[in-house]
Structure formats: C-alpha cells, structure tokens
C-alpha cells in the first residue's frame, strides 16, 4: 500500500496538496488544531494512492515528509 506522511505540526492549511492529488485522497481535517487551523489529512481507505509525490512537490512547508511506494 502506497502512502504519504504528513507532519501536521508543519502544515499551514494552504491546501495546495488537496488540489494536486489526482486521486483526491487529501482533505482538510474536520477538527481544528490548537491554532484553529484545519490541517491537511491523508485518507486512503480504498488504497488508491499511487505515490506520485505531487502533493509533496507542491507543499511549500515540507509538511509532507515522506512518500512511499509499494
């Protein structure tokens, strides 16, 4: 199963990754963090991630720290 790792503490909720993901696997969290930010969250119940790393490439805050392909 391919996946990405998001370091929530670095995410500033710009949502560029949400737009970049071809499989629409990244969403804003439903609950805000301590700063009131709805940070990005990776949810891949159907194991659709293709590890294209587009999300990591567009992330301006190196919050997506890893992309792993299986």
């Amino acid at each position: 199963m391919s996946y990405i790792v998001i370091d929530e503490s670095k995410c500033k909720s710009c949502y560029l990754c949400i737009n970049a993901c071809p499989k629409k696997l990244i969403k804003a969290k439903e609950k805000p963090n301590n700063f009131g930010e709805y940070t990005a969250e990776f949810k891949d119940d159907k194991k659709e991630c293709i590890a294209c790393a587009k999300c990591a490439l567009v992330c301006p805050d190196i919050a997506i720290t890893k992309v792993v392909k299986e």
Partner: peptide, 17 residues
Amino acid sequence: MQTIFETPKTIKENSRF
C-alpha cells in the same frame, strides 16, 4: 517498499518555514 520522496538532507532537521 520504495521511498519516492523524503525531505531533502540539506534541509535542517525539524525546520519549520
């Protein structure tokens, strides 16, 4: 398992822009 992307080594650990 193959790492497609990780934070570049030249970026300091625990950097926060």
